[in-house]
Design a binder for these strands. Structure first.
Lengths: 186, 186
DNA sequence: TATGCCATGTAAAAAGTTACATGATTCC
DNA sequence: GGAATCATGTAACTTTTTACATGGCATA
């Protein structure tokens, strides 16, 4: 199960509470890599602790418990990270939508693809803004993902936008000019 | 649930049997967008048929049943495809690994990133070869995904490769030269 | 006639989601 | 004192995976 590895990885980067880990799964990590709700995280932390892969290192205010990986956990994580690239779990609802867009009428496909372009560009400027802000106030807490993740996201959305633009051309070409909009705005 | 939409979408592109649909979930679709085993597909087709979203249009050899979307199913699909871009399910084991690479020692991180570059380049040439082959013998069967998907995949892997190269530089820079390999091979 | 792929399923177990629940601390 | 957020959990339900099972057709 990848949730356990995600937890081991996050805790290896920095010890954290279940609450903090859950937040991380809603931010960058959840957006690009792996989602998990707090109702999965807490029981899983308990299981990992039972297996000796993590341990509680600190109990703080509001009953909070800070976990850290043990040596055994770090070894397990290392093996997983260095294991050869197999097929792994892939599940992405938005990419699924992209792939099925062809089931629509061609002009609706193009409309949807234009939506993709806009969405991607919106996310790109968000990420750029975030990166600039990061240069001013350096990261804190469980934000170690920030630099690699935001760069990855930026390039990801760039590729998505370019692909969508290409796909619009492709669909139009295949179709003659059944297109609803104006062809190429200079 | 996205599995139902995936099935509606595939069947809207072209009627198919559960077997053919399952194969598609193991190819392009499973690699980039959504995985599903045949043990999920068959029961789901039955549920969709009960709801009147798909129907059996043909029974062929070896007890095979060809399904097609109904008008109701097509409408359901259309609504889903044209609905606004929300957060959707995201789960990608390999991307998760990328994000957690920092938990390794810096030189191991770089080693792993070099593996990513190689993997991405390998997949890219596979996809290019496939695309050239496609130009000779045109697609057949449930391969309508082929053109958009292979282009998407290509750009995806290109972005991944470029990101990994950038990340190697980034990690090295942050680290001084604790790197194990030779820096920049011309 | 045996091997391999086509083609479909069931049942149990594991994983993940949704709904519900509750106490602690801070900030207004 | 009340609202918001921190922080953790349980239980029921849904979805997915794993293991098992079986018959049909082609071809060597």
């Amino acid at each position: 199960m990848s949730l356990s590895h995600a937890l081991l990885g996050l805790l290896a980067i920095e010890p954290a509470s279940g609450y903090e880990l859950s937040k991380e799964f809603e931010r960058d990590l959840g957006r690009y890599a792996w989602q998990a709700g707090h109702t999965s995280v807490y029981p899983e932390l308990i299981r990992l602790a039972e297996q000796g892969l993590v341990e509680v290192t600190h109990e703080g205010a509001r009953r909070s418990r800070t976990y850290a990986v043990t040596d055994k956990g770090r070894e397990e994580l290392r093996e997983w990270l260095l294991s050869p690239w197999g097929q792994g779990v892939v599940r992405n609802e938005q990419v699924l939508r992209l792939f099925l867009l062809e089931a629509l009428e061609p002009n609706e496909t193009v409309t949807a693809l234009r939506g993709v372009v806009e969405h991607a560009e919106g996310r790109m400027s968000e990420l750029r803004a975030l990166r600039e802000k990061r240069d001013v106030e350096p990261p804190e807490g469980l934000d170690v993902l920030g630099q690699l993740a935001s760069e990855y996201g930026l390039r990801q959305y760039q590729a998505l936008r370019d692909w969508a633009l290409w796909a619009i051309e492709h669909v139009n070409k295949r179709q003659g000019s059944t297109d609803s909009g104006s062809p190429r705005q200079p």
